[in-house]
Design a protein around this nucleic acid. Structure first.
Lengths: 205, 205
DNA sequence: CGGGATCCCTTAGGATACTG
DNA sequence: CAGTATCCTAAGGGATCCCG
């Protein structure tokens, strides 16, 4: 940490020294969704070299951001309380970054954890509170999520399941989260629920 | 940008591709305080190599985050509207990073722009609204700032000036912003105003 | 003097193969 | 499955130089 520090004393500098290395915040992003095994992390970050993933996990551990926890015969990595406090950082990055995204390029993959964080950064609790509880099954460029909104809370799980509304979009994920629903295919359920989804999850352009 | 991308499609990834390179967010941090000339940026980031500063400025420009603006014979760099929207990212990093800071090390410098952002991330508008307008002249490890709080607004300028309260601390900056005022030297004014400062600017531990 | 560009060298990070 | 080991490229660090 001494060789790559910035020589300054302030919060931003300190934060970047702890989680500013390449891939660091993407690992934190996935762990914000839930504890993950080494292989699950590697699967969600297909382009990270194995040695880099191992190095980052050690550094994040040393910094007190994640910990290794044994879970019935296997090891999982999970955020410590201090690590979980990175959620505002990750969500504000997600909000900001989404604004300049357009359609996914050929080589870009969409992962469940990435989309889960995107939904979290787009969630409008006050809008949701005024609407009835609703479940959605959404396909985003092949990644399938089951989303259950209930008052000011919501949960996301992987995979499709029967829901009030089932819909999918291939390439216009940013448009959908910005409220432009033209490219959405409704697979099942009342198409008018799409407007409700758009009110509940929205990233302003 | 293509060679160093992460191969994923989501907001966090996109954001890190735009501002995640080394030094990127520190440049943005300083520009959030105000437009800066090339030399001013270099002065506030003493350890950045000149070629890296030049490269980052070009990349941030190409990404639409900053722009070069002529100001009466000289060039200044300033944030675009999209760049200014990074403020929540920088402030949340500041809030998070400060929690694990202790005293500045020998080789770490304290800069006016860094402290200004630290104060911004620590500012409690609702606490300030309930208190009388107050001006502070603060010395943080040699960096002197004049802070004027008025209702839910506040401004920071460089340098000392006559203020309701003048105080200084050398090494316990984190402690001061966490409400621990034991190490503060009051230079002028009513020492009881220190408590007001601590209510107005506070980073929870 | 401000605003960079150029050089050389070090090291993080990418690709891939291997091991307990 | 959960990492190490190795080799190589390219980004970053440091010093110096250039140009209007």
């Amino acid at each position: 940490m001494a060789a790559r520090d910035y020589g300054q004393y302030d919060g931003v500098t300190r934060a970047l020294e702890l989680v500013g290395e390449r891939w660091g915040l993407l690992i934190v992003r996935d762990l914000l969704v839930g504890p993950r095994r080494y292989g699950e992390l590697a699967e969600g970050l297909p382009r990270i070299p194995s040695n880099i993933l191992a190095a980052r996990l050690k550094e994040l551990q040393a910094a007190g951001i994640i910990r290794r926890a044994p879970r019935s015969r296997v090891i999982v990595y999970e955020l410590t309380p201090y690590g979980r406090e990175l959620e505002p950082v990750v969500l504000s990055l997600s909000t900001w970054g989404f604004k300049s995204l357009d359609a996914p390029r050929e080589e870009q993959i969409v992962t469940p954890d990435g989309m889960t964080i995107a939904l979290r950064s787009a969630f409008r609790p006050d809008a949701a509170a005024a609407l009835p509880s609703t479940s959605y099954a959404a396909g985003f460029a092949g990644t399938e999520l089951f989303i259950n909104v209930d008052g000011t809370d919501f949960g996301v799980q992987r995979g499709m399941a029967p829901a009030d509304l089932e819909f999918a979009t291939d390439s216009q994920i940013r448009a959908v989260l910005s409220g432009d629903l033209d490219s959405v295919r409704v697979l099942n359920g009342d198409p008018r629920l799409l407007a409700r989804f758009a009110q509940t999850f929205r990233l302003a352009a």
